[in-house]
């Protein structure tokens, strides 16, 4: 009879055992804030469809100190999502070869963050122009 009895170690709590995994769980956790913000916007859309009174109710709710606080935290978490999204990009996208040389990881991440800055300025400008 075989004396073999391979021991399988449990996975419970794996993500607490390595700083790399803790960071991974935090950046995965940004999804909760993306979802919450999408729901806030969805509520706004429904109110907008319901009419002026409902819309003004939504606008008023947005001014509540706790809602402001929620948006502050959400801003930090979604900004962290942006940073980690482009930080992992060099690993998740196919190699880009320009002029016979492979684009470096720093260039990809930097390019992504530059795109965030550009898109943000563009959005601010457009919003300012449309609501003036």
């Amino acid at each position: 009879m075989s004396k073999r009895r391979p021991y399988v170690r449990p996975m419970a709590g794996w993500w607490r055992k390595n700083p790399f995994f803790i960071e991974y769980m935090i950046h995965e956790g940004t999804a909760l804030f993306v979802a919450a913000y999408a729901l806030v916007l969805l509520a706004g859309l429904v109110c907008l469809a319901l009419g002026e009174a409902a819309w003004n109710g939504w606008l008023g709710a947005m001014k509540h100190p706790l809602v402001i606080l929620f948006h502050l935290v959400t801003l930090a978490m979604i900004a962290y999502h942006s940073w980690t999204w482009f930080k992992i990009m060099p690993k998740t996208m196919p190699p880009v070869v320009i002029g016979g040389k492979r684009l470096s990881a720093a260039m990809i991440t930097g390019g992504g963050l530059a795109a965030v800055a550009l898109a943000s300025l563009l959005a601010l400008g457009l919003f300012w122009g449309m609501t003036r």
């Binding site: 706004g44 001014k63 402001i68 482009f86 898109a119 601010l124």
Partner: peptide
Amino acid sequence: SALLGPVLVLITGLAVPMGLLFGADAMSY
């Protein structure tokens, strides 16, 4: 959300409700 998430939260969640940067009725009906 990586490209536009932060700026949208800034506009709809902070700047407009707090009356910063944009006019008071920037997000009027």
